[in-house]
């Protein structure tokens, strides 16, 4: 692979290979010295035009654990503020000798655009409402390891709850899980569903809560309330939040996932620490392993024709 821009670009073989590589990276991460020399001499530039804590730190950690060098570009302190164009920024950084760009941007399609301006690999770390492929991969890897689903997700039922319409996470996660064989149900008020939803959908979480293997809660963004798409957060919680009562109706062994950052008291009112199926912390640690796998595949094993 040269770039990772969207889940749609990945074949099942690609996904399998990345999952197997992630197993190796998890083993590295469990060592006393969690570092291997695999990407010595390579430089990865994190270009984050949108705020992020976990994704940026996760990519940074992943690069360092593979012995690569990291350039982190904080847009707020950069010449972008002096009016430098995106293209000039990319070409300037590329001229310093960068092997991969990790790009997050508020507009869909920016990572694709960046590919045209540089010969380096490009990883999409989230673009607009479009795609967030490494999030989906780490979520799939989490389900694969937690539920022992190495052979795929046939028969697995995933419910994605929340603001489906504006969520690149929802789009990427649902498509990847479906690609792996899972049944996907969107749970959201109609104002937060896309016009033509790709998967089954319902506005009643109680309809599906007892019938799912993975409950995937999305972050409820407060600005949606200002836009009057949700009457108020209290009502959202009543209808779509994971309350203690709903948690009690989850199947035994069902997983509860969240991409973070979490709005405690909105999409979830139970303490995840007290939910046996909550794997939110594992998602974060698996994120490092999966991003190591992606970087190794782009810059190491996949950098030459197989």
């Amino acid at each position: 692979m040269k770039h990772l821009l969207s889940i749609d670009d990945l074949t099942l073989d690609d996904v399998d290979r990345l999952m197997e590589l992630s197993d190796h990276m998890s083993e590295v991460n469990q060592r006393a010295n969690p570092k291997v020399p695999a990407l010595r001499g390579t430089t990865v530039c994190n270009l984050f035009f949108e705020s992020s804590t976990r994704t940026r730190l996760s990519f940074e950690t992943a690069t360092k654990r593979l012995s690569g060098d990291v350039l982190t570009f904080a847009v707020s302190e950069s010449s972008v503020n002096k009016g430098e164009s995106l293209r000039d920024t990319i070409e300037t950084v590329a001229a310093m000798g960068v092997d991969a760009f990790v790009v997050r941007h508020g507009s869909s399609g920016v990572p694709q655009q960046v590919c045209r301006w540089t010969s380096a690999s490009v990883v999409n770390a989230g673009d607009g409402w479009h795609s967030h492929p490494t999030q989906a991969l780490l979520d799939a890897y989490t389900v694969r390891t937690e539920l022992g689903r190495n052979a795929g997700f046939d028969g697995l039922h995933l419910a994605v709850v929340g603001d489906i319409k504006h969520s690149r996470v929802a789009r990427s996660v649902s498509r990847l899980f479906a690609k792996l064989g899972a049944r996907v149900t969107f749970v959201a008020p109609t104002t937060l569903l896309p016009v033509d939803p790709e998967f089954d959908h319902t506005a009643d979480l109680d309809n599906v809560i007892g019938d799912i293997d993975v409950l995937y809660l999305l972050r409820m963004q407060r600005e949606r309330m200002r836009e009057a798409l949700v009457p108020n957060l209290g009502e959202y919680t009543t209808r779509f939040g994971l309350t203690p009562e709903r948690a009690g109706r989850l199947r035994e062994g069902a997983l509860v996932m969240h991409p973070g950052p979490m709005n405690h008291g909105v999409e979830i009112t139970v303490d995840p620490a007290e939910l046996p199926g909550a794997v939110i912390g594992h998602q974060v640690s698996n994120g490092v392993a999966v991003r190591m796998a992606v970087l190794f595949d782009l810059l190491g094993s996949g950098a030459v024709a197989r």
């Binding site: 190796h24 590295v28 291997v36 020399p37 695999a38 593979l66 094993s301 950098a303 030459v304």
Partner: peptide, 11 residues
């Protein structure tokens, strides 16, 4: 694999 000296020279 992660310790080889031919990473990115051959698969």
């Amino acid at each position: 694999a992660f310790y080889r000296d031919d990473i990115a020279i051959r698969p």
